[in-house]
C-alpha cells in the first residue's frame, strides 16, 4: 500500500515536471549545499561498510540511502 502511494507521488511529480516549477533556492544560493560536508555519502567506502556492519546484525534492511543529488550545485 505504501509502495503504491509512493509510486503515485513519483508519477505525479514526473507528470508535473512538464510544467515550469520555479526553484525557490536559486543556483547562486547553493554554495553551502555544495560543500562536501553536506554530502549524504561523502565517504562511500565507509558508508557501505557501516551499512554492512549493521545489516549483518539486525533484522532490518533496506532504504540505506546514498542516492545523493538534489543540490543542483554543478
Amino acid at each position: 500500500m505504501l509502495a503504491k502511494f509512493l509510486l503515485a507521488v513519483v508519477v505525479a511529480m514526473l507528470a508535473s515536471a512538464c510544467s515550469s516549477v520555479e526553484p525557490w533556492v536559486r543556483p547562486y544560493e547553493r554554495a553551502h549545499l555544495a560543500d562536501p560536508i553536506m554530502s549524504f555519502t561523502r565517504d562511500p567506502v565507509a558508508s557501505a561498510y557501516m551499512t554492512h556492519v549493521y545489516q549483518a546484525r539486525e533484522g532490518a534492511r533496506g532504504a540505506e540511502g546514498g542516492h545523493g543529488g538534489g543540490c543542483g550545485c554543478n
Binding site: 554530502s39 549524504f40 555519502t41 562511500p44 567506502v45 558508508s47 557501505a48 551499512t51 554492512h52 545489516q55 549483518a56 539486525e58 534492511r61 533496506g62 540505506e64 540511502g65 546514498g66 542516492h67 545523493g68 543529488g69 538534489g70 543542483g72 554543478n74
Partner: peptide, 22 residues
C-alpha cells in the same frame, strides 16, 4: 542472509552515490 542483500544494494545505493546531472 543480510550479507547477500548488502552485496547487491551496495553498488547502487552506497558505494557510488549518484548525483543526477553530473
Amino acid at each position: 542472509m543480510w550479507m547477500r542483500a548488502y552485496c547487491g544494494i551496495c553498488l547502487l545505493c552506497g558505494c557510488f552515490p549518484v548525483l543526477a546531472g553530473v
